[in-house]
Structure formats: C-alpha cells, structure tokens
Amino acid sequence: MQWSVIFKKEMVEYVRNVKWIWVPIVFLIFGIMDLITTYYLPKIIESVGGMPEGAQVNIPTPAPEQAFFMSIGEYGTMGILIIALVSMGLIAGELKSGVYELVLSKPVKYSNYVTAKWAALSTLILTSLFIGLLAGWYYANILYGDVSFGTFIGTFLIYSIYILFFITISVFVNTWFKRPGMVLFVSLLFIILVNIITSIFGHYLTWSPGHLSSYLNGYIHTGNVTGDLWGTLATTLFLIVILLFSAVTVLKNKEM
C-alpha cells in the first residue's frame, strides 16, 4: 500500500520532468547509432577523401551477431553514464533539499522508501533498454542478416541483470552522500573498479559481474547459456539484494 504510493509518486515525477520521453529516446538512439555508422563507414571514408590514389579501404562487414552486440557495447559505456546521471539525485537530491525529512516524518518504512524508488528507476531504465535493444535487433536484421528473436529476448533478460546491478550500485551510493555530483562520481568509480578487478583476477573470479558482457557475447554467437553465465547471473542477483539491504541499513543509521 505505502510502497505503491511512493512508486506512483515517483512515476508521476518521471512524467512531469519528461524523463519518460527523453530516456527511451536516448536509449533508442544509442541502440541503432553504431549499427548505422558501421554500415555506412566505407562510404563515409570514401566521401571524406584524403586517401592516396588507389588505396583500398577494406572494412569487413561484421556478422549479424557481432553487429547486434555493438548495441550492448554502447549501453556498457554511454548507457551506464546516462543511468548514473539520471539516478544521481534519486535519494541524494531529496536528502539535500529536505524532501526526504518531509517524507520520513510520516511513518514511512525505510525499506519501502528505498525499494520503491529503486523499482521506479528500474522500470524506467529497463523499458528504455528494451526499446533500444529491440531497435538495435531490428536494424541488425535489416542491415547485416538474421538474428533470431529468441536471441534478442535472451540478450535483453541477461543484460538487464547487469543494468539492474548498476542501478542498485547507484541507489546504494545515493544513501551515502548529499551531493548528487559525488554520487555520480562514486557510482561510476564503483562499476569501473568492478571491471578492473574482474580483468585482473578474472581467472579466479569467473562469476564476477564484470564478466557478464563477455559471456553475453558468447551467448549471442552460440545461443548456449554456459554454466559460468548462470553462475555470474546468480552472483549478480545476490549482490543486488545485498546492496539493497545495505542501502536501507545505511539510510536507517544516517544522522540527519
């Protein structure tokens, strides 16, 4: 009851500050931009010129699966940045402006407050991701060749876990600081650290969330969900739950 009130309030706010329009549009553009640029790259190079007489431009056309994975690559960098920017004021902004005290002066449970906000943000981002990936899949089919619809659904489900992981990191960091800029910086640092640690100790940490996109690449090419991929998904989900719990705990013990 209380939970759905906070969730709805958050949704109304997303409509009011036009997030429900611009976030899906930006994700849609990220999903298809790389596919189109790569497709027209030989022509672009030709028209820009500056190549010596008789020079051959040989850019191999990527396989359809590879092309589809380019959308994922875009979300791994630009998508993460946009999510961090959208979520940096989620709780920190309310801590700063005093709305937070206003909300919690009523008997609102911390856990309801955090999870409702988390769920609202996840709904917005995952819907945008779905639209963007769908467009990417469509363009990969038109420009490069067949990628099955099943692969698209699988890719969306697997990658949304990684995106959820980052959203949760951002919500968690939101409970630490009052300054949105600080939240942005630390949450990006967090995900970069996860990726660096994964690339250094990757042999031991085969189930680290940092491996998810490379395992996903394997899944798109072969269609098989390997044991390592299952393990990684399980670890990531586990970390999401832990982070949400910690976020509630940190907020509870925060001195205002």
């Binding site: 036009v18 329009i21 549009i25 189109i36 022509k43 028209s47 363009y139 038109i142």
Partner: peptide
C-alpha cells in the same frame, strides 16, 4: 557520396527521433 546512395528509409527514423527529442526539449524549455 551521392545523396541517392543513401537509403533514407534506414536513416529517417533516426532523424525523426532526434527531431522529437529536440522538440520536446524546446517545448519544455
């Protein structure tokens, strides 16, 4: 590159979506 070489049916959605984004931003502004 001649303009006729480009398949506008492919690029049109991208341009339209960017235009919508711009329009929404300006109306909101």
């Amino acid at each position: 590159m001649g303009l006729e070489d480009i398949n506008w049916a492919l690029i049109a959605p991208l341009i339209i979506v960017e235009m919508i984004l711009l329009a929404v931003a300006l109306i909101d502004l």
